[in-house]
């Protein structure tokens, strides 16, 4: 197994006209760990995700991903679809992006597109219905069923994703990301809008994804209880720059972090205090 961190950002900068959303940001995410990326609203967290997953082309900097076998990818050079296909990075979105008119099962089947495309002989063998294609399709369904069970949505496999409750949609989106077989899973505020019970279940799910499946996780989260409970390391951003980095305990006591939150949003600062208490 490679000893390099799974993800390393080196001087990542993203400019939108005059706005510098991310400014010379460097941090690493360790293999098979949960790394949390926190910061007040507008700090640039989602922008970092969009750079990692190829939705934005960074103005400058390097985003390096290293697989277990040592294979390296520089994400800023990859085509957007290759970030999932080759570099094996999956993500969810801050505002959920499911395929609302497709069933939960179909959503998870679309996630396995590249593997299935290959198995279907670029559609031609699939059109003829050759046995190897049928076997591949069945194993894709089995994989989808596995993840549906894992997130507790198996009984709703045949329902349209658009009909799901908010919390269920969030979990379905995670299941869909996992169906791509990622090395790194990027979650943008997965606990947003969840109630306490759902949030607890989410913690368990993420911990199990990390330890049972060996998937490294990069997590944006405002809910401090989630961050404190499950993350191995925390990176704090404000105004596009990193202001602190360390274990959850270190971060909790860092006056700079508390100041950053106090300076922007009372509620969140209170959440930090609460987690401390």
């Amino acid at each position: 197994m490679s000893s390099a961190p799974i993800l390393a950002l080196e001087n990542l900068t993203m400019r939108f006209g005059g706005i510098v959303a991310v400014n010379a940001l460097s941090f690493t995410a360790q293999r098979k760990q949960i790394t949390a990326l926190i910061g007040p609203n507008g700090a640039g967290k989602t922008t970092v995700f969009n750079c990692i997953t190829g939705f934005y082309k960074p103005t400058s900097g390097v985003i390096r991903l290293t697989h277990d076998d040592g294979a390296q990818f520089e994400m800023q050079k990859l085509k957007d679809y290759n970030i999932s296909k080759q570099a094996k990075v999956a993500r969810t979105f801050q505002n959920i992006r499911l395929f609302p008119g497709m069933t939960a099962l179909e959503n998870l089947m679309v996630a396995q597109h590249n593997a299935l495309m290959k198995a279907s002989g670029l559609t031609f063998l699939g059109l003829l219905g050759v046995p190897s294609w049928r076997a591949a399709e069945q194993s894709a369904i089995d994989n989808a069923v596995f993840w549906l069970k894992r997130v507790g949505l198996l009984d709703r496999a045949d329902d349209a994703a658009g009909n799901f409750a908010y919390g269920d949609q969030r979990r379905l989106e995670i299941a869909r990301a996992m169906c791509t077989g990622p090395a790194l899973l990027c979650l943008d505020e997965p606990a947003a809008g969840l109630n306490a019970r759902e949030s607890g279940a989410l913690n368990e799910l993420l911990l199990s994804i990390r330890s049972d499946h060996g998937t490294s996780i990069l997590l944006i989260e405002h809910d401090m209880s989630v961050v404190m409970e499950i993350s191995d390391r925390v990176v704090v951003m404000d105004y596009g720059v990193k202001i602190a980095e360390g274990t959850p305990r270190e971060i909790r006591d860092d006056p700079k972090v508390i100041a950053a939150y106090l300076g922007t949003d009372e509620e969140e600062a209170a959440a930090v205090m609460e987690a401390e208490a």
Binding site: F55, Y81, F93, F99, P100, M102, H113, R176
Partner: peptide, 19 residues
């Protein structure tokens, strides 16, 4: 399925590695 997914949400398709 990729065609229909494209109709539903192009951004999500890109994140799932669909060209």
């Amino acid at each position: 399925r990729a065609w229909e997914a494209l109709r539903e949400d192009e951004v999500a398709c890109r994140a799932l590695g669909i060209n």
